[in-house]
């Protein structure tokens, strides 16, 4: 009986360590991808950084959804902004919308993605749609600020 308990506790310990290392690797991959994007200045570097961010986005999320979901939205936003810097608004729009599809809740990152979507639409000459996206971002922003004022 004691041996079984010992084996079970060792098994649980191994599982916990394995999950912790997976989370650590996931967090490191995201952090490195963002660091590469921070350093990038030439078109080639920007493109390489974009690929690194895309690989991080395609990874299976490791950790709590409450943390990984905003991280994924932030990744999509960063990829979209890199495409805007590379003068690729269509790709930027695709990535902004992928980020928006991740979570429909009115969050601060959704607001950011709507701003990026507006930038991409504006670059594509779709000014009315861009303004609509900006107004949606403003609505979310106002809602969040009101909630914060009510619950400081």
């Amino acid at each position: 009986m004691k041996t079984t308990l010992l084996l079970l506790s060792m098994l649980f310990g191994l599982c916990a360590c394995s999950r912790a290392s997976e989370r650590r690797a996931y967090a490191e991959q995201i952090a490195e991808a963002h660091a590469a994007a921070d350093r990038a200045s030439s078109a080639e570097e920007l493109r390489a950084a974009g690929h690194g961010l895309e690989r991080a986005f395609e990874q299976e999320p490791q950790g709590k959804t409450a943390t990984t979901l905003p991280l994924r939205q932030d990744l999509a936003d960063r990829i979209a902004r890199l495409h805007l810097r590379l003068d690729e608004p269509a790709e930027a729009l695709t990535w902004a919308r992928r980020g928006l599809a991740e979570n429909g809740d009115p969050t601060v990152l959704r607001g950011g993605l709507l701003i990026t979507e507006a930038d991409a639409l504006e670059a594509l000459g779709q000014r009315d749609e861009a303004r609509t996206a900006l107004m949606a971002a403003l609505e979310i922003n106002q809602t969040l600020l009101n909630v914060e004022l009510e619950n400081p």
Binding site: R19, A20, R23, R24, Y26, A27, I30, A31, H34, D38, G63, K64, T67, T68, P70, L71, D74, D77, V108, G112, I115
Partner: peptide
């Protein structure tokens, strides 16, 4: 906006580490 978003990202990554 980019600077503040980078700080928020840093917090999210830190909380992912803390989730362990």
């Amino acid at each position: 906006l980019d600077r503040v978003q980078a700080e928020y990202r840093h917090d999210l990554l830190a909380s992912l580490e803390a989730d362990r």
